[in-house]
Design a protein around this nucleic acid. Structure first.
Length: 442
DNA sequence: CATGGCTGCCC
DNA sequence: ATTCTGC
DNA sequence: GCAGAATGGGCAGCCATG
């Protein structure tokens, strides 16, 4: 399939803001994609790589300027000027390629496959890293070569894909609906959404969609395959919170730490960030804490990793904990300097997926597998109540202890990956109340 | 070998 | 993470 | 009210430079 097919669809997407029109445009593109469907769908997400894969090009705007310059023979200054004027690097790329005028008569058209393979190649160069330093110039030339052999409009979108900034108003929801329209006559969006929640890979979901509903539904929650975390809505008052999640509700402290999804598979632990990155290496202490204090060999915990001061055991701000997240060196040393405690608050897998069970059940199961151990593993501070006064009290206590506030949760609700549905709500104080709480604590 | 630009990813 | 926008 | 885009602060790692 020619890349220009994608370009045509993208141009149409660029010209409307109506969601339904976008869905139609994408559905048509998907229907015409044939064997290239998985790659085409990924391109539509704005990056050729699914979120759960640890792959990227290591290229952003500054490097893209160099690439466009290399591809078109214009100076970087010119490219930057065009970028500034048009407010978009894709448009700058398009203009620069247009100005390149002459011959490309003989050069063959870019295919989806070629664009995909080229980017994959660059991503592989990037990930080699470690010991063998990546030759940036070579990397840039690979991508410049792709752009220089493209038509102006293709260049526009190739450029945008390279920096993962398609900005066509197309997100997960639109792609999901388009897959539904293309292969199920607009039905089964729920099944498709689920398949995506569990796989985090639209290439797989697209392929399954083309094969049939059964294949879509076969994409299930799997250990070592992180799912998107359920997100919380903001509310301003306790009353609003109760309105959202119902009564009684589960209330727990919200800590200033890092969200972590912890998978245990046959006793082996892996730790994932909210955006599905594997940070097991960075947190050997978390692995240990789970090995020692979780009584299950096959489960998925939703947790907050919280740092504490090794001297007095007090909480530390996220900013200090963050030193550990991307560590590759001195991990052991930082482990001593910035020790952490795991605070689980949900369980979505226990020998089997349980994310559709009510939160109250999941919490009870969680409590039954957690052995609480000071400075290692402790359930989040929590209570179940319908009383606004009690919630107020917890909010005060949480803030006085230096935490961020509280969460309120619907006891009947299932676990909705990636969704900011009203099953889970966070109450953080505005500045004034924060001052009051801290003053009140002293 | 130190520094600064760049990128990606936590919040 | 928050804030803004168009639907 | 929602999804998508745009934006901010701060961190480590990486690479090019001098």
């Amino acid at each position: 399939m020619k890349f220009s097919k994608i370009t045509e669809a993208f141009e149409k997407l660029d010209q409307t803001q109506k969601t339904l029109e976008k869905t139609d445009i994408l559905a048509e593109l998907f229907e015409e994609s044939g064997e290239q469907l998985p790659q085409v769908v990924l391109m539509c997400t704005g990056t050729p790589f699914p979120a759960w894969k640890d792959m990227d090009l290591g290229v952003s705007s500054k490097t893209l300027v160099k690439i466009i310059s290399k591809a078109t023979g214009r100076s970087e200054k010119e490219v930057e000027k065009e970028w500034k004027e048009q407010g978009d690097l894709g448009l700058a790329a398009q203009t620069m390629v247009e100005k390149k005028t002459q011959q490309r008569l003989m050069s063959q058209e870019i295919t989806v496959q070629k664009a995909f393979e080229r980017m994959q190649k660059v991503a592989e160069m990037e990930s080699e890293g470690l010991n063998s330093s990546v030759n940036q110039d070579k990397k840039q030339k690979e991508l410049a070569d792709l752009i220089s052999s493209s038509e102006p409009r293709e260049a526009k979108y190739l450029a945008r894909i390279i920096i993962n900034n398609l900005r066509l108003g197309v997100g997960e929801g639109t792609i999901r609906d388009a897959l539904s329209e293309a292969f199920f006559d607009g039905k089964h969006t729920g099944d498709i959404q689920k398949a995506y929640d569990f796989s985090n890979d639209f290439a797989e979901v697209a392929k399954a969609s083309r094969e049939g509903l059964e294949q879509v539904n076969s994409l299930e929650l799997e250990l070592y395959r992180p799912v998107k975390s359920m997100l919380a809505k903001n509310v301003d008052t306790i009353e609003e919170g109760f309105e959202e999640v119902g009564e009684p509700a589960s209330i727990n402290y919200k800590y200033d730490g890092m969200r972590a999804q912890i998978h245990v598979k046959e006793g082996q632990v892996k730790v994932f960030t909210r955006r599905l990155d594997d940070v097991t290496e960075q947190f050997p202490d978390v692995v240990e804490a789970v090995e020692e204090n979780i009584e299950s060999d096959n489960c998925i915990l939703d947790t907050e990793i919280v740092g504490y001061d090794p001297e007095d055991g007090g909480m530390i701000p996220f900013q200090r904990l963050s030193k550990r997240i991307k560590r590759k060196y001195e991990i052991q040393k930082l482990k001593e300097e910035i020790p952490v405690e795991v605070r689980p608050f949900d369980l979505i897998y226990l020998e089997e997926p349980i994310l559709q069970r009510p939160y109250r059940d999941r919490w009870e199961k969680l409590a039954s597998v957690v052995n609480e151990q000071e400075e290692e593993m402790k359930l989040v501070d929590n209570d179940i109540t319908s009383e606004a006064e009690r919630v107020q009290e917890m909010q005060q206590a949480s803030l006085s202890d230096g935490h961020e506030g509280i969460m309120m949760k619907n006891l009947q609700a299932e676990y909705k990956p990636g969704n900011r549905v009203g099953y889970m709500v966070k109450l953080k104080p505005v500045m004034e109340t924060l001052d009051l709480a801290i003053v009140g604590a002293k």
